[in-house]
């Protein structure tokens, strides 16, 4: 058995003096779609920020067998970890095409994705290729943010709240995009508050509460585990 693609063990993190993560442990195998669920404020986003190095972590983060805890965000990214923040962070003054170009990493050839792929998967981006990113709709910006990260050819992409604020049609589109990403051999960590697409496309799920992992299992198991859903997920 080979080592997992990403293996996080006993991860602790702080914002100033407040202790946010209390020993988070999880793993993601190659080609796997994994969801990290939980209510607002339980530390889901902090977990991926700590993995990226944007928040200073304590604990072990092994990616492709190498310890990456303590690396700077750009160093983590260059090792093949991609992150799409909840806030999308499109560069508003740059065109859609320029946003995508900036996704490419210096000195790293992209084996999986070309700009043509992005335009084929999401034709709307091609129509708007020369428009400033800032004028795109929320849903389009979300797609652009994901495509931009893919241009850096990550082996694992961590997407924070991909469906938040999207119309039902866009949610379905997003689900298809994520499955297409997985088909190309990119592992996905989905960070979600709602179960909408998480139950449909994930292989495994983790539920977080109070800065820890409180449940782990398959989508079918979560559908029947009403106590877990009531205690940790439903509002």
């Amino acid at each position: 058995m080979t080592a997992p693609l990403l293996e996080v063990a006993d991860l602790n993190a702080w914002y100033g003096k407040s202790h946010i993560l209390h020993g988070v442990t999880f793993r993601i195998e190659a080609n796997e779609i994994v969801s990290l669920l939980g209510r607002n404020g339980v530390g889901r986003s902090t977990t991926i920020k700590a993995v990226m190095g944007d928040v200073r972590p304590r604990g072990s983060i092994r990616f492709k067998g190498e310890e990456v805890a303590g690396l700077k965000p750009h160093e983590t990214a260059r090792r093949g970890l991609g992150y799409v923040p909840e806030t999308r962070d499109i560069f508003p003054g740059l065109t859609v095409r320029q946003n995508l170009i900036l996704g490419e990493k210096p000195g790293r050839a992209n084996r999986r994705w070309t700009m043509a792929d992005m335009f084929r998967i999401f034709p709307r981006l091609e129509e708007r290729a020369d428009t400033p990113g800032g004028v795109l709709s929320g849903g389009e910006q979300k797609m652009l943010a994901i495509c931009r990260t893919l241009m850096g050819d990550p082996d694992l992409i961590m997407v924070d709240e991909p469906t938040e604020g999207l119309s039902p049609m866009m949610v379905e589109h997003m689900g298809r995009l994520l499955e297409e990403i997985a088909r190309r051999g990119v592992a996905i960590l989905l960070v979600e508050q709602k179960l909408t697409i998480a139950l449909k496309i994930s292989h495994r799920l983790y539920v977080m509460g109070h800065g820890r992992i409180v449940w782990e299992g398959a989508p079918a198991a979560l559908e029947t585990a009403t106590d877990v859903r009531r205690e940790w997920l439903e509002v």
Binding site: F91, L102, K105, P106, R108
Partner: peptide
Amino acid sequence: THPEMVAMLGHD
């Protein structure tokens, strides 16, 4: 405008 995001894309 977004230095953190630029770093997350692998730029130093």
